[in-house]
Write a protein that binds this DNA or RNA. Structure first.
Lengths: 327, 327
DNA sequence: TTGTAGGCGTTATCAG
DNA sequence: CTGATAACGCCTACAA
């Protein structure tokens, strides 16, 4: 015996095709044909019924590893996230992916990816997914590791028009007469790539319009003091009348910080966020990303990748400014 | 650009031990010994180096399915959640599990479980995890399906002393003189099992103390009208002075609903929640669950299960009432 | 110190 | 219509 080290009571005792075949008095191949409903093969209804019934009675469960080994592919799609509670948008995306993949017989598994805990290669050797979907940003080394290990990778947030988001924020503010604007970056490291793109959009637009570069502050959403400090900087900047934030969460924090000082967003300082998260839907001016449309694109890209085709590119407009009280 | 635009059909072309062995002029066994660092075997340093180097050069990645098939076990632990953004507590638990399992060489994968989308059996045949960890409640049929398919199952929320939570809520309120109390259930179906246990705790305590059964309302946290309706019921109940809620989230909603009517929690109506979530830490009286301790227990149980031992039982006190303004 | 051979459960090919 | 049989990539008892 190989690893008969288990003196304990637990005996997994897998039910194999062999067992079913023996119980039915047929061959393993026949069992496989019936169970997989192979189109070409003609099996008598009697045999088919018998096999199916005994399979159920014996409690046979197809064994994924053997199947994978034989087929050379797995039905697992692995989504890498930085945190178990992803934001509003990622959440919606994951949901869409989940049901779309389920329809195609794939299963979506989420893994909190922490490079310090385990490398991409190790991860790959533990699960062998058909596709890796990366939610959020990625450091250079992470990206390299991934590309070398996994055959198919979809970088979701790479498909988002981040630069355009920044430009739209800037456009909206300047169109309303603001000339000196601020920008709030999130401190979260994994967001830096994305945030950088958005900031670049703002900077490009400012340059194009001949107005000063935005004043940039970094904020940790879990630390209200950092928000307050950023507000200090903005209020102290000569002529600054508007602030664009990396997302609505930060935008809302800024609104609160203003209120705490007896100031009002929109009157004393214009604020524009990104995402149109539910809790922002009363007050906050924001750039809305059409999650539904974007989700469709993401799903399409994922399915294309699984079929070894080119991922689709975004063709339609995903972005829209929603004007509310704060700007 | 997501990926290197492969012109032709992508040929994965797996690098196997065979390839490495041939390139090195040794046998497959030797390669395996080196790669797995088998203790008993003595391999010359020269051979070892050679094998390791060529393995790296060829870009060999161990193939999980083959490994699983041979070893008869997988290094995957599957956590079933109802929603991609689990609550504060589940989140903390998942985090703890994640790092603990990583240390033992397991990988924690999260799956949003939706019985209407896919049965447990199907799920099992797609991933074949060593252990299934169920976060949150489970319907009867789900539970049965799981037990028949998966060898090892850990029902996390089954380990929580829900009845005691209810009793502590009731104790706290009655100790402060309240005689007629209300209870708010969440509408979420998957929480019903848990919520039922907590309610039972309250009911038992009320019976023991000889006070009336609690007035029960059901609330959907995403629907403020349902909260308002529940408040109507409570305010209309003769002599009702306190309400216990299934969790802090609902408790906070109730506080807001009171405020909206110009009433004040703690003065006009006592409110006690469960969880001590961050946003409740200013005002809300609550039953705190020591997530850290509980997490340790959950981790211990998981590891025990993986070692085919009996899961540990909770021995220490996890609960504590935190008294704040609202009760 | 290294090589040989067999098998884990499945599916596919090829005979009967 | 059905039954042997050969892989898939990996691990390990045993032989050399």
């Amino acid at each position: 015996m190989t690893d008969e080290a288990a003196p304990g009571p637990r005996r997994p005792k897998r039910v194999t095709h062999e067992d079913i075949a023996r119980a039915c008095g047929v061959s393993r191949a026949t069992v496989s044909y019936v169970l997989n409903d192979v189109p070409g093969r003609m099996i008598s209804d009697a045999t088919r019924e018998l096999v199916l019934r005994t399979a159920r009675e014996l409690g046979h469960v197809p064994y994924a590893p053997a199947r994978m080994l034989r087929l050379g592919r797995s039905d697992v799609v692995l989504a890498l996230v930085r945190d178990f509670s992803p934001g509003y948008i990622s959440n919606a995306l994951l949901r869409k992916l989940d049901v779309a993949l389920a329809e195609r017989g794939f299963v979506l598994l989420i893994h909190r990816y922490d490079e310090s805990l385990r490398s991409v290669q190790e991860l790959w050797q533990l699960v062998s997914p058909s596709l890796v979907v990366v939610m959020g940003g990625l450091t250079i080394s992470e990206q390299e590791g991934l590309e070398s290990a996994a055959a198919r990778v979809l970088r979701v947030h790479g498909t988002m028009p981040n630069v355009r988001i920044g430009r739209m924020q800037a456009d909206h503010l300047t169109a309303r007469g603001h000339r000196v604007i601020g920008y709030v970056l999130p401190s979260e490291p994994s967001l830096q790539l994305i945030a950088g793109e958005r900031l670049r959009g703002i900077q490009e637009e400012c340059a194009a319009l001949g107005i000063p570069e935005p004043v940039v502050c970094t904020v940790d959403p879990t630390d209200m003091d950092s928000v307050s400090a950023a507000l200090d900087v903005f209020l102290a900047t000569e002529g600054l009348t508007a602030v664009a934030t990396h997302n609505d969460e930060i935008g809302l924090l800024l609104v609160s910080a203003l209120q705490a000082r007896g100031l009002e967003a929109g009157r004393d300082l214009a604020i524009i966020g990104v995402d149109n998260i539910p809790s922002a839907r009363v007050d906050l001016t924001t750039v809305e990303i059409d999650v539904d449309l974007w989700g469709d694109d993401v799903v399409a890209s994922a399915l294309a990748l699984l079929d070894d085709e080119e991922p689709t590119t975004i063709s339609h407009e995903l972005l829209r400014v929603i004007e509310r009280r704060t700007a």
